[in-house]
Computed example of a mutant assay.
Amino acid sequence: MALELKKINEENMEGIKKIYHDSFPIEEMMPFDKLVSLSNDTDHLFYGLYDDNMLVGMNYLIINEDMVYVLYLAISNAFQNKGYGKVAINRILEQYSGYRISLNIEEVTPESLNYNQRLRRKSFYEFFGFESQQHLISNGEVTFETMVLNGDVSYQEIRRIFDDLQKHKSDWYREVN
């Protein structure tokens, strides 16, 4: 299975939007139209993930110097547990092998209502070699933990990305401590 990446456009926008809305709780979402308007060919990359011309997922990457930040990665509900998530991560790792690759997951705490899901998600990324940076950021409802591969990422680097995104959605993230 090989995934083809197709930039978001008029033809695939509704399908990608559905995957996005089905995959993330509202408190973790940027406004979809803002994501589309921010996406470009240099530092904000918004793609549909295709297997044999079938839309199976989406991702949104932010390139910042020598770091790739995975803002969103989701596989359509209809295609989950079929290996597409692993293929998508491997594609990112191959394409950006010379970069530090960073992402945030919901903080894994036993008192979380979806504790097992959070634990599985963290284990999924650890399988690829991602390590926790112990950077915690909250949007007031959800606390996120930073994970990275190929080096360390400082809290300030993550903060700069969020501050830039913050301009487009007030109170989206704030510091925890």
Rank of each mutant, 00 (worst) to 15 (best):
Ala2His: 11
Leu3Trp: 03
Leu5Gln: 11
Ile8Tyr: 03
Ile8Met: 06
Asn9Met: 04
Glu10Tyr: 05
Asn12Pro: 01
Met13Val: 09
Lys18Gly: 05
Lys18Ser: 11
Tyr20Trp: 02
His21Lys: 12
Ser23Gly: 10
Phe24Ala: 11
Ile26Pro: 01
Glu27Arg: 04
Glu27Gly: 09
Glu28Ser: 12
Met29Arg: 13
Met30Ala: 07
Pro31Trp: 10
Pro31Met: 11
Asp33Gly: 06
Asp33Asn: 13
Lys34Glu: 14
Ser37Tyr: 04
Thr42Pro: 00
Asp43Tyr: 07
Asp43Ala: 05
His44Cys: 09
Phe46His: 05
Tyr47Met: 05
Tyr47Glu: 05
Asp52Thr: 11
Asn53Gly: 09
Asn53Leu: 08
Met54His: 14
Leu55Glu: 06
Leu55Cys: 04
Leu55His: 04
Asn59Val: 04
Asn59His: 13
Ile63Thr: 07
Ile63Ser: 10
Asn64Ser: 15
Asn64Met: 13
Glu65Thr: 09
Glu65Val: 12
Glu65Cys: 10
Val68Asp: 06
Val68Ser: 07
Val68Thr: 04
Tyr69His: 13
Val70Tyr: 01
Val70Pro: 01
Leu71His: 12
Gln80Lys: 10
Gln80Asn: 07
Asn81Cys: 13
Asn81Asp: 12
Lys82Pro: 02
Tyr84Asp: 07
Gly85Glu: 04
Lys86Asp: 15
Val87Ser: 15
Ala88Lys: 01
Ala88Ile: 03
Ile89Trp: 02
Asn90Glu: 13
Asn90Asp: 14
Arg91Thr: 09
Ile92Met: 08
Gln95Pro: 00
Tyr96Ile: 03
Tyr96Lys: 02
Arg100Lys: 13
Ile101Ala: 11
Ile101Lys: 08
Asn104His: 02
Ile105Asn: 01
Glu106Gly: 05
Glu107Pro: 00
Thr109Glu: 08
Thr109Val: 09
Thr109Met: 04
Glu111Gln: 10
Ser112Asn: 15
Leu113Phe: 14
Tyr115Thr: 03
Gln117Lys: 05
Arg118Trp: 01
Lys122Tyr: 00
Phe124Val: 01
Phe128Thr: 05
Gly129Glu: 08
Phe130Arg: 00
Phe130Cys: 02
Gln133Gly: 09
Gln134Thr: 09
Gln134Ser: 15
His135Thr: 13
His135Asp: 11
Ser138Met: 08
Ser138Glu: 02
Asn139Ala: 12
Gly140Phe: 08
Val142Met: 08
Thr143Cys: 05
Thr143Asp: 07
Phe144Trp: 03
Phe144Cys: 06
Glu145Asp: 15
Thr146Gln: 12
Val148Ser: 15
Asn150Tyr: 06
Asn150Glu: 07
Asn150Lys: 03
Gly151Trp: 03
Val153Trp: 03
Val153Met: 12
Val153Cys: 14
Gln156Val: 12
Glu157Tyr: 02
Arg159Ala: 15
Arg160His: 13
Phe162Glu: 15
Phe162Val: 05
Ser170Val: 14
Ser170Lys: 15
Asp171Ser: 15
Trp172Ile: 13
Val176Met: 12
